[in-house]
Each structure stands twice: as C-alpha cells, then as structure tokens.
Computed example of a mutant assay.
Amino acid sequence: MYLGHTIQALGSLLPSSTGPVDCPGDEASRCSSGLLTMHLTQLNRECLLHLFSFLDKDGRLTLSLTCRRLREVFLDPRLWSLLHFSSPCQLRKDNFVLGPSLRCLSICWYSSRVQQVCNIEDWLKTSFQKDICSKHEKLVSTFLTHVCHMCPNLLSLTLSGCAHITDQDVISVLQCCKRLRRLHLENCVRITDCCLQGVGALGDSLREVKVDFCRNITQAGLQSCKVMRPAVRLSAERSADMIPDIQPEEKPPLRKSLQKLLQLS
C-alpha cells in the first residue's frame, strides 16, 4: 500500500463537517468545498508511526529526511519490531534502527554465490574465492553482536544462507536474548552440534528450533538436543543425512570423497 493511500484512508476516518467552517484569510478558498485539509506533520506520533509501518526500510529513510519531526518518528524504536534482510550487504545500510522493540529478525540470502563460493570449505577455496568471501565474511557475525547488545527482547531469529556464521554467533544470541522462542537456521554450513549443545544449555525460552540443510549437524547431536530439551519442537530437514565436512588429514573413504566432489560440482 502506498503512503498516499494510507493517508487517504486515514482521512476518511476523520469526522466530516456539516456546518460552515470559519476559514481565516487565504484558507477560505480551500475550505469553500467543506473539506478540511491538514499537514502530514500535524498528525500525532501514533498516526505517523502507523503510516511509516506501511513503508519499506528505504521508503522510511527517504521520508525521514524531509523534516526533523519525521526523522524523530523514523528513530522511534517502536517502528522497528520486525527486520528482514534479503542479503548481508543490506546490513551496511543506514536505513533501519536496532533497539529493544525488535522482536523478529531474519537474514535470508538466496544466492548462487552461497552455493558456489561461501559454502565451500576454506581449505578448498581458491585465492579468488577467498577474496570474494573476505568482503562480507564478518558482516552477519558483527551484526549479530550488535543485536546481542541492543535487542534483549528478540523472540524470533531466522538465518538462511548465512554460510559464515559460527556456533559461537548463535550461542551469543542465546546468552543475551533470553526470551528467544524461535530459532531457524537454514543452509548455514559452519553450524555444528556445538550449536545444538548451546540450545540445550541456554534455550530456556525456546519453543521451536530448525536446523535445515546444515550439513555439519549429525544425528547424534540432534538426539542429544532432544534429550536436553524435550519440550522444544526440533526439526532438521536433510541436515543429518548430508555429508559433513571432513578435514583433509582425516582421510575420508574414497566413496564419500567422490560423493562430496559431485555435490560441489
């Protein structure tokens, strides 16, 4: 819905004038039709927050640059109870506000680069691939550190395609956001059973945990987590059935090595 439509809908809720309206000076011509006009900034804070809620992050930022009053609305933490990012690069923008009102956070990166570069083990990457990863490798981890310090009331966290996040990143969120109820990790290749151990030790408020397509999650890790947190709805689509990463010095069987090579090709 466009902002103009929202303002129009809001105007329809205002009581219409049935009698004559006293219009001083130059306002008389605008009031001759019986319509009362008002400036956007004359709306109270609650109405402005409602209007801002219909805009995306870029739209909110653009509107906030028009005057000080709208900038104050943009910076109101209540406006930012939900944040969604479609790529880690969006975390660099200054078009959002982190605060205690944040309840739901999702960072989802559905990109071929994730499969072709980020998901490859470090010891298999070429220097060119390592250079690509270096430009965004710490983005999500650094952002989650800010979330830990500024968003203690977070209830839901979704990380999809964030190939560079580690077990410690998720454990830090569990330590600082003690009200977290939903944790969904998808295609995060560095997540291992240590993350599930953190869920068992720190997830007092968790009600649902998903670790889908995380190839370094094992069946033993899932079973251990279920024992520690029987009340948590735990699911792991394909994770325990995928071939885990194996360090070169471990000398994996030839059959598994060929399967791994076919997956990467």
Rank of each mutant, 00 (worst) to 15 (best):
K138S: 14
V189T: 12
M150C: 07
L183F: 03
T166Q: 11
L174Y: 01
T145S: 15
V173K: 00
V140N: 04
C176F: 07
C151V: 04
V189M: 06
V189A: 11
K138Q: 15
R179P: 00
C162A: 06
R190D: 05
V140M: 02
C176P: 01
C177T: 09
Q168C: 07
D169I: 03
T192C: 05
L154P: 05
R182L: 11
V173I: 15
N153S: 14
L154Y: 02
T166D: 02
T142L: 12
L154A: 02
D193A: 09
L139T: 12
T158K: 12
Q197W: 02
G198Q: 05
L183Q: 09
L159G: 01
I171D: 04
C188H: 05
S172L: 10
L180S: 11
L139A: 10
T166V: 03
L185I: 09
V140I: 11
S172V: 00
I165V: 15
H146R: 15
C151A: 11
H146I: 00
T158Q: 14
L159P: 00
H146M: 13
H184D: 12
S172W: 00
L159E: 04
C177P: 12
L183K: 09
L139W: 01
Q168Y: 01
Q168D: 15
A163V: 03
L154H: 04
S160R: 13
C194D: 13
C177H: 08
T142I: 01
H146D: 15
H146F: 07
S156T: 12
S141K: 08
L157V: 09
H184F: 09
R190I: 05
